[in-house]
């Protein structure tokens, strides 16, 4: 399976994302600069965290105007897995690929620590390696991760099981219904504030995030490889 890691000026988790795919999973991966105009050769798209365009105007607002975003939208429409982490999640909401928006953290502080996440829905291409209700440890590092949407959107998210991860116990940012990650209606676009790519090796404090990437590959193999 071949992944693209999209790189914007100001992305800073791109190397971790690349490492997770190449060294931990052993799959193919390439960096794709934001001015590029073709993602057709890739099977999955990863939008890493960081501060694209210095978070000028709003987080993700400027990145959403890049050439590559039209291609990310095409990939999403074609049903390819698209994962946005942290700033990547913010970009996906700005792009309208996911509903809602990310506001400043309730306490106005940048939060950087490991949190417990509950897997609310393990029936997605991103979470099939987890158990439903499983609690996993994944680091967060964000100042604007307070997920917000209107009541109508929330009701839809709940009815369609689109809430994939919630904060278990302590909610670090004040997000609605403790939401940490959601998928689109089709289930092939996931946005989440916590960083699974920073939890792929026991040597650096835990590997709970690796299962997310394994899930993507497992699903892809089931769909594309005939044994």
């Amino acid at each position: 399976m071949k992944f693209a890691v999209i790189v914007f000026p100001g992305s800073n988790c791109d190397i971790d994302m690349y490492h997770a795919i190449k060294d931990e999973l052993g799959e193919e991966v390439e960096y794709v600069w934001h001015t590029e105009t073709d993602l057709s050769q890739f099977d999955g798209v990863l939008i890493p965290g960081g501060f694209s365009y210095g978070d000028y105007l709003r987080c993700g607002a400027m990145a959403n105007q890049s050439n590559i975003m039209a291609e990310v939208k095409k990939a999403a429409a074609a049903g390819k897995p698209v994962l946005g982490v942290c700033n990547g999640f913010q970009i996906l909401t700005e792009a309208g690929l996911l509903p809602g928006a990310l506001l400043r953290n309730r306490d106005l502080k940048f939060m950087c620590r490991t949190v417990q996440l509950k897997v609310e829905n393990n029936n997605t291409l991103f979470t099939n390696h987890y158990e439903e209700g499983q609690v996993i440890n994944i680091p967060i590092a964000h100042g604007e991760g307070n997920y917000y949407c209107d009541e109508e959107t929330l009701a839809k998210l709940q009815a369609n099981n689109q809430i994939v991860f919630t904060y278990s116990g302590d909610n670090p940012n004040g997000s609605l219904e403790d939401i940490a990650g959601i998928v689109n209606e089709q289930g092939n676009v996931l946005g989440m504030m916590p960083h699974p790519e920073r939890a792929v090796d026991e040597l650096v404090g835990g590997a709970d995030g690796l299962e997310l990437f394994k899930s993507i590959v497992k699903q892809w193999r089931e769909n594309h490889v005939n044994n």
């Binding site: 105007l57 709003r58 607002a61 105007q65 909401t93 700005e94 809602g100 928006a101 506001l103 917000y148 949407c149 209107d150």
Partner: peptide
């Protein structure tokens, strides 16, 4: 399109 996010 750009300057504001009408969701928020």
């Amino acid at each position: 399109k750009v300057l504001t996010n009408v969701v928020i």
